[in-house]
Design a protein around this nucleic acid. Sequence first.
DNA 1: CCCGTGACTCTAC
DNA 2: CGTAGAGCCACGG
Length: 110
Amino acid sequence: MDKRAATILAVVRAIPSGETLAYGEVARRAGLPRRARWVAKLLATAVDESLPWHRVLRSDGRIAFAEGSAGFYEQVRRLRAEGVQVADGRVRRSTPMARDDLDALLWAPA
DNA sequence: CCCGTGACTCTAC
DNA sequence: CGTAGAGCCACGG
């Protein structure tokens, strides 16, 4: 596994439980803009069981897996287990969080 | 080297 | 809001 992959996975692991991030955002935070598809491919081949891959969604908040597929249900199940509202294969945020607010949350000092 | 294939994204309408 | 269409990028045939 190269350094870029490791960085991507680190960003994914940094997503707090109950929060989500888009593939493109993950790539951007890892310093690899326009690599969204690559992030998806990476998650698909990742073996680390502790990796919170389910917290990564499409930019519009929808589950990336085809609706009805095994992965789709698995992701919905995991998200709901963390208290995330999912309806029609899409994550619902009652109060959409601004990008800056999410930034502050993710990068806030422990 | 060209072509197809995605757990993608952005812009127009 | 939702749907095309084009763009994008790593990879394999």
